[in-house]
């Protein structure tokens, strides 16, 4: 599936929720289910700066596609990363670079996009794209 298709799928899922509580409960559950990053990658250099909670992201290239794994010590943050990883993992670097992130707004998480938010969703998206740029350079 393309990034856009996955994003639309996520938007559909979130449209079923009636209030913030259901939305957050779903994110919390996603967070609990997030495949954990291999402990060896939970290093200080893999921590994303700009988050109040700790967030680790690791990227690996397999068959020209990037696979992301991640973890956080806060569960809501983990839920947010789980959503991002679902949209961006196992995709070509160029597609990740080109992807827009409007879907975050559409699933009612706009508040997490503000630069004042301590969870650093903006930093996470930036970090995923940075990995994509780095791997894209290798492909050339």
């Amino acid at each position: 599936m393309s990034i856009e298709d996955i994003q639309n799928e996520i938007i559909d899922e979130f449209s079923m929720f009636e209030d913030w509580e259901e939305r957050y409960q779903y994110m919390i559950d996603l967070g609990k289910d997030l495949p954990l990053i291999n402990d060896q990658y939970k290093t200080d250099s893999n921590i994303i700066k700009g988050c109040q909670s700790k967030v680790w992201v690791h990227a690996e290239m397999n068959d020209d596609k990037i696979e992301f794994t991640a973890d956080s010590d806060a569960i809501i943050t983990k839920g947010i990363i789980a959503i991002l990883i679902r949209a961006f993992s196992n995709q070509h670097p160029q597609d990740i670079i080109d992807a827009n992130t409007d879907f975050i707004d559409k699933i009612g998480l706009k508040e997490h996009l503000s630069p004042t938010r301590a969870n650093g969703l903006v930093s996470m998206v930036k970090q995923l794209k940075m990995y994509a740029i780095a791997y894209q350079t290798q492909l050339k």
Binding site: E21, I28, S53, D73, I75, I76, T77, A118, N119
Partner: peptide, 13 residues
């Protein structure tokens, strides 16, 4: 067992 950030986020809602 719960991160303070998570508690603060729910309280804000």
């Amino acid at each position: 067992g719960i991160h303070p950030y998570d508690v603060g986020t729910i309280l804000d809602k």
